[in-house]
Design a protein around this nucleic acid. Sequence first.
DNA 1: TTCATAAATAAGCAATTAATTATATAATGA
DNA 2: TCATTATATAATTAATTGCTTATTTATGAA
Lengths: 106, 106
Amino acid sequence: MSGIEQVADVLKLLGDKNRLTIVALLKEKELCVCDIVDVLQTSQPNISQHMRKLKDGGLVKERKSGQWVYYSLNVQDKPYIAEILKEIPSQDNMPSSVCEENECCN
Amino acid sequence: MSGIEQVADVLKLLGDKNRLTIVALLKEKELCVCDIVDVLQTSQPNISQHMRKLKDGGLVKERKSGQWVYYSLNVQDKPYIAEILKEIPSQDNMPSSVCEENECCN
DNA sequence: TTCATAAATAAGCAATTAATTATATAATGA
DNA sequence: TCATTATATAATTAATTGCTTATTTATGAA
């Protein structure tokens, strides 16, 4: 069961622009770290640390394949997150076409 | 329109246990600062500062009456907040009967 | 006016946070 | 083996945050 503290912790995770953008991106499809680095235009360690927080908070799960780590959403048990993501315009999610090309994962 | 940054700012506000509890309390009825101080068992300035953040973030509105300031929710335009509050068990909202008695506002 | 109560503001501080840089680990292929 | 790529970890720093204490403002009553 989710107490008020657990909900607050989840919202704190989503209360960061980069992490909220990552979660919105993952709503579309799973992505590897380098995809996210390309889209958010920040450093690889920065994204790596955000992904760890999201994973520790139970919001994403990972799948390793070769040298890549693919992250995907793991929020079936938190329906309010779907409502939050409805509020985010999709053009904000995918600021460039980088993600479609998946350059770093070819 | 609410961009991703605006949503993140709202979630950051709700990502604090005290503020989330306050919002959950206000879902039931409007409350004055001293009511909230009683329920959350913290200092008056602490609550006052949280209320200012919630007000600046547009989540609550205030109504002054005599020496009291009553706060109420102002989240009609943010349906995802209702979904978040559904996740919070109501026994966590009202940890004591203090709020029912409204001691400080008599 | 004086006193009491409610709330806001200001200043200070300890803890947390997001980011950077540097380094380490791991997998792939030459 | 060695080099390259993807990711994680560690250490550092600057900025933010939540809280405390002290003070101020404002309202109402004696």
